[in-house]
Design a binder for these strands. Structure first.
Lengths: 218, 218
DNA sequence: TCAAAAGTGTTAAACGTACACCCATGA
DNA sequence: TCATGGGTGTACGTTTAACACTTTTGA
């Protein structure tokens, strides 16, 4: 007895202009020729699921070293008109400076998605829902930021993901109280205003936060 | 190009003697003959993933009408010695009165698991972790209870899942403040002590709870 | 000196947590 | 009347949420 085909699709998020963006590819051939789709591809015979997602992001978008987690497995028997393919969807996050990928790939703002091939719209919707949930109790948000960032940038990331504005004073108070940021003692000067202090996220300090039952809600 | 095989495995939880139990099957044939394993089986060609889980629970454990949700997809290329099989793991919850299933299936307390076939131990561990997380912000806990229950039974369910004791007064205060239970105005008499009032979970009242950002933490 | 973004504290309400005794029942 | 589990309230500390002005800089 042989099985069905298995693919891996990835919803790759990045921040652009204080908006969440998703990486989409333009499909060149049927089915759904001319439509946009998530970067994805078939699982190789001896490949881990996550390794497949990494390989596909490298091949199709020239990206390396991204944060990845499994999202959900979509198995509607009719999701691919060519025949049964179940897909293991993933979420990936990259910092804003990530270079614009090759020709047929582009960053698309989440609020202006075109029609997507297959059930990819459902996958994107679910990915956003999951990201919104997760950012409130885990430090995934920092994966959307460069290594060194300002508090305003963190707040903008949270606002972009959650889709609502947050109170500056409360946000900073909460964020700093978690003691997971290391101040770099430097500031970044941009434009005719007060320079912003730079920080770095210290992964190692996060452990204590979960243990204390402390969460990360704004 | 043909794919690998896809199976569906389910971690089926129930409460027994105020302890969490898992349904295990005894394997009759290799690989892992004589070991215990989760109820699982191969996905059929035109079958939804969740439908496969339902079918397998009916076939292998004689169960119907269980609460089911997808857990995670495990894809280690070496997880099955016979060849590549990726498995879409699910969590299922049933109330305590669920009849003891057929011959080769048995309820096993979580704290006394035998060696499990394949990577099933990892799957059970992850399922418990997920259930613990989820019970704190969603009403899944009621799926482990009969339709009519006492507040003490709810608390015992939470204690069994979370693995720690909870304060009776605080638990009741919080639970009742959510306004998701309908008091039945009746009581259940058992033994030489005050009868316990019966309640029913009102699914329809849950919506407002999530919307208000209210959560379910003890 | 102006515009622009950075940075900062207080108060009131809600929530979480710790804690001990009376009630209703059947034996 | 006793043993058993059911049922209840208060006080304190912590967390959240609402809210506006001063600082630093370059143009």
């Amino acid at each position: 007895m042989t099985g069905c085909r298995v693919s891996v699709d990835t919803v790759l998020f990045r921040l652009g202009l204080a908006r969440l963006q998703v990486l989409l590819l333009r499909r060149l051939r049927p089915p759904f020729a001319g439509w946009s789709s998530l970067p994805g591809g078939l699982l190789h015979p001896r490949e881990e699921l996550q390794a497949a997602a990494v390989r596909i992001l490298r091949q199709r978008a020239g990206l390396d070293d991204v944060y990845l987690e499994q999202l959900f497995t979509f198995g509607d028997p009719a999701r691919d008109p060519r025949g049964r393919v179940i897909t293991v969807a993933h979420i990936a996050l990259v910092p804003p400076a990530t270079p614009l990928p090759a020709g047929d790939a582009s960053w698309t703002p989440l609020h202006a998605l075109p029609r997507l091939a297959f059930d990819h719209r459902r996958i994107v919707d679910y990915a956003l829902q999951r990201l919104r949930g997760k950012i409130e109790y885990s430090p995934v948000g920092f994966r959307l930021l460069p290594e060194e960032f300002t508090l305003t940038e963190v707040q903008e990331a949270y606002e972009a993901v959650l889709g609502r504005v947050l109170d500056k004073r409360n946000f900073r108070k909460k964020l700093l109280s978690l003691k997971v940021l290391r101040p770099l003692g430097r500031a970044r000067k941009v434009g005719a205003h007060r320079p912003a202090r730079l920080y770095r996220f210290e992964e190692s300090r996060w452990e204590g936060v979960r243990d204390k039952g402390n969460v990360f809600v704004f």
